[in-house]
C-alpha cells in the first residue's frame, strides 16, 4: 500500500510536469516571429495617415480626370481646363491669394515681463521660434500660411538678418501675425496641447494667442520668380 501511494504520486507529478512543459513550449514558440506589441500603436498611426492620404489622392484624381475629360471635348474647353489647373497649382505654390477657414496667431513677448511661470527672462522671438510655429502648423495640415503678410512658399526662408527677421527677403517685425488656412479647431488644439508648442514657448516668455476664424485671407508671394540654376528635367 505504501509503495502504491508513492508510485501513484510520482506518476501523477510526472504527467503534470509533462503537460506543463508542453504548454510552456507552445506558449514560447507562439511568441516568436510576430509583430512586436509596441508596433501596434505605430501601425495604427500609420494607417490613419494612409487613410487620409488615400482620400486626398482620390479627390485629386477625380478632379484631374474631370479636367482631362473636359480638355478632350474641344479647344475652348481644353483652355478652360488648363486655366483651372493652372489656378490650382498657383494656389498650391503660393503664387495666388487664397482664403478659407483657419486660424490667426499672434506671437509676442509676454506683456507682463516678470509674470510667474517664466523660466528664463524673455528675450526676443527668434527665427527658430517662428520656424517651429510654421512647422507645427504644417503638421496640423495647414494648406496655406503667411507671417505678417509674407506667404510661405516652398523656398521661403525665415531667418534673422541683422536686427530683423527676414521672410522672403523682406524684413518683418514683432508682434508676429501668423495666419493659416485649414481645420481651425484641429490646428488650435494641436498647438495648445499640454506640453505642446505653445506651452514650450510660454516657458521662454513668449505668448501665442490663437484665434479660430471663419475666413482668413492669405496673400500671394510677391517676390520675383527666377530660376538661375534649376532646369526642369523632362522625362519621356
Amino acid at each position: 500500500m505504501k509503495k502504491r501511494i508513492f508510485f501513484l504520486s510520482i506518476s501523477f507529478v510526472a504527467v503534470l510536469s509533462g503537460v506543463i512543459l508542453g504548454y510552456q513550449f507552445r506558449a514560447t514558440s507562439a511568441g516568436n516571429n510576430v509583430v512586436p506589441l509596441d508596433r501596434e500603436q505605430e501601425l495604427a498611426l500609420e494607417k490613419k495617415s494612409l487613410v487620409e492620404d488615400l482620400y486626398e489622392m482620390r479627390v485629386e484624381i477625380s478632379d484631374l480626370s474631370a479636367r482631362l475629360d473636359q480638355a478632350g471635348v474641344g479647344q475652348r474647353e481644353a483652355e478652360q481646363a488648363l486655366e483651372r489647373e493652372l489656378a490650382r497649382i498657383r494656389r498650391f505654390a503660393g503664387l495666388a491669394p487664397v482664403s478659407g477657414p483657419g486660424v490667426e496667431l499672434v506671437a509676442q513677448i509676454h506683456p507682463e515681463q516678470d509674470g510667474p511661470g517664466t523660466v528664463q527672462p524673455p528675450k526676443d522671438i527668434t527665427d527658430e521660434h517662428l520656424l517651429k510655429i510654421v512647422n507645427e502648423l504644417n503638421k496640423a495640415g495647414s494648406e496655406a500660411i503667411a507671417i505678417n503678410g509674407q506667404r510661405i512658399t516652398p523656398i521661403s526662408e525665415i531667418r534673422l538678418a541683422g536686427s530683423h527677421i527676414n521672410v522672403n527677403g523682406t524684413p518683418i517685425s514683432p508682434p508676429y501675425h501668423i495666419t493659416a488656412i485649414g481645420n481651425a479647431s484641429a490646428i488650435k488644439s494641436r498647438l495648445e496641447l499640454k506640453g505642446g508648442l505653445v506651452d514650450i514657448l510660454n516657458e521662454y516668455g513668449i505668448s501665442v494667442e490663437t484665434q479660430e476664424r471663419n475666413e482668413v485671407m492669405i496673400p500671394a508671394f510677391a517676390g520675383e520668380l527666377n530660376f538661375e540654376y534649376a532646369k526642369p528635367l523632362k522625362e519621356n
Binding site: 485629386e60 494656389r91 498650391f92 495666388a96 487664397v98
Partner: peptide, 14 residues
Amino acid sequence: SGSIKSDYIIEADI
C-alpha cells in the same frame, strides 16, 4: 509626389 490638399481653401472665381 503627394496629393495637393485643398479641403479648406475656397476656390476664388477663376
